[in-house]
Design a protein around this nucleic acid. Structure first.
Lengths: 198, 198
DNA sequence: GTCTATATACCGATAGAC
DNA sequence: GTCTATCGGTATATAGAC
């Protein structure tokens, strides 16, 4: 019952999305043609339109899938007793999750300007949903007197920005191990929010 | 002696660069055509080639000018007595400089992948030159015992990433004044590097 | 589901007139 | 310095055959 090569819809769809993710991240949405994605998949350009209505929807779908995966994952984090432990776990999670998906991260933060207005609003909403998680950690920690954070919203965005910086330079096998990088950023994060026991 | 409208080379050049900066930032290098830039300037597309050899050189020149301006400005900062004061001044400088040039910042960090290899190396070199400034502040502060920074290079990159985050959300007339934003980030920066007197 | 072929439009860059 | 006109090439998306 094996399907003929290149005729399995699910498989072609998977390959199209993988190729688009890689190429959009590497060269930018506007610079990548449907022909080039098709060549990577091993089909002609017209065949892609069986799997996506158009290029714009393909971009949106890649970004939305990434953010839904991120939201599912952050929502599944185990509970922690102390604000410091919650913060440490978030830093650990955020760095590892994003380093494991460099292409999706790049696209989700860099191709916002290439989204149609409706799609843009949808993605921005998902991003704000994610930012609410660290914001809650900081707000709760401040309320409990564990953190000194004058503005939890800004601190949360600043924290995420700092952690995202890692994706621009970290390479496996470099000077620092992933554990080192996480530990360094947990320390900086605790300091930035004025955690006493840092 | 007034030049005829649209015939002054320096003026057309200035307008071309301003239009390209704005359009590249808004829509991305690959998505902006020379025809569109020309329309913004008020000339035909062919006329732009009097002012730049090609589109790629135009992008490179915008990025290089921005980074040279940044390097000149950071190099001209007044000296400060204490590590904390140096850090505070850098944070203040970085935020204000970048918020005043949102388009150039966006391009300098987002269009690296659209640079030809030689141009990429040149821009990356300038960016590293800039990162050396906060790195020196953190290294000196750590050596003096004022900061607790296990890795000044990573801390410097993380600091810059956190500060750059401001450009993605700050809008004049919003909830916080620029002074507020600077003060909040100075406080977070001091905390992140373990400054005792934070 | 994928192919070939194509409609329609835009691209970067250049040539030569003024 | 800018114009008009154009070369050669590519783009997204669709139609109809298989």
């Amino acid at each position: 019952m094996a399907k003929r090569r290149g005729q399995d819809a699910a498989e072609t769809d998977r390959r199209m999305r993988a190729a688009a993710l890689r190429l959009f991240a590497r060269h930018g949405y506007a610079a990548v043609s449907m022909r080039r994605i098709a060549a990577e998949v091993g089909v002609q350009a017209g065949a892609l339109y069986t799997h996506t209505p158009d290029k714009q929807t393909l971009l949106f779908s890649l970004m939305a899938d990434h953010l839904h995966e991120l939201l599912d994952a952050v929502g599944a984090l185990p509970a922690d007793a102390t604000p410091e432990a919650r913060l440490d776990r978030f830093v650990d999670f955020h760095i590892r999750f994003h380093l494991a998906r460099p292409d999706a991260v790049f696209i989700a933060y860099m191709e916002l300007r290439n989204l149609a207005p409706d799609n843009f609003r949808a993605i921005e909403g998902l991003r704000r949903d994610y930012e609410a998680w660290p914001e809650a950690i900081l707000r709760d920690g401040a309320a409990a007197g564990a953190f000194a954070v004058p503005d939890p919203k800004i601190a949360a965005v600043g924290l995420i920005a700092m952690l995202n910086g890692v994706t621009t330079w970290y390479r496996e096998g470099g000077r620092l191990s992933l554990d080192d990088v996480v530990a360094i950023h947990q320390r900086m994060a605790r300091g930035a929010v004025g955690a006493g026991g840092a």
